[in-house]
Computed example of a mutant assay.
Amino acid sequence: MSRTQSYYRMLDAAAKIQFNIALILEAKAVEAEKSRHWVCNHLSPMAYEGHTEQVKETMDVHDQLIEVIDGLTKMENALAKNLQTILNRKDESDSGDLGGGGGLGDLFGGLGGGLK
Rank of each mutant, 00 (worst) to 15 (best):
M46S: 15
N88T: 11
E49H: 09
T58W: 02
G114L: 05
G96M: 04
A32H: 01
E76L: 11
P45Y: 01
V39P: 05
D97E: 09
E33V: 00
E67F: 00
M1L: 06
G112Y: 03
D63M: 12
A47S: 15
R89H: 11
T4E: 10
Q84F: 02
L65G: 15
L98G: 08
T58C: 08
D60F: 03
T52W: 02
R89G: 14
K56D: 13
D12G: 09
G114W: 03
S6C: 10
E92K: 12
N20A: 07
Y48L: 01
S2V: 00
M59Y: 02
M1R: 08
L98E: 05
S2K: 06
A29R: 11
N88R: 09
A29W: 06
I21G: 13
Q18S: 15
I24V: 14
T85R: 01
R9G: 02
A14G: 04
D94A: 03
Q54L: 15
N77I: 07
L65Q: 09
G71C: 05
T58M: 10
M75W: 06
R89W: 04
L11F: 04
A29E: 14
L104F: 06
S93L: 14
G109F: 00
K56C: 03
L72A: 09
N77V: 08
L25R: 12
S6P: 04
D91R: 15
H51D: 11
T4R: 02
E31T: 12
G100L: 10
T58L: 06
D63K: 04
H51L: 13
L107Q: 01
L115A: 09
K28F: 07
G103Q: 05
D70F: 04
I24P: 02
E26S: 14
Y48R: 01
R9W: 00
W38C: 07
M1E: 08
G113Q: 08
R36D: 15
N41C: 13
D106V: 08
V68R: 05
K34H: 14
L98F: 10
K116Q: 15
I66R: 01
M1N: 08
A14I: 03
G110C: 05
E57D: 14
L98Q: 05
D94Q: 09
E26V: 00
G101W: 01
G96S: 02
I86M: 02
V30T: 12
H37V: 12
D91A: 14
G101V: 05
G103P: 03
V30K: 12
M59H: 04
Q64S: 14
G50D: 15
E92Q: 11
E67I: 01
H37Y: 14
H62M: 09
A78T: 07
A29G: 06
G100I: 07
H42N: 15
G112L: 06
L43T: 06
D97K: 08
V39E: 14
L79I: 10
D94V: 05
E76D: 10
S6D: 09
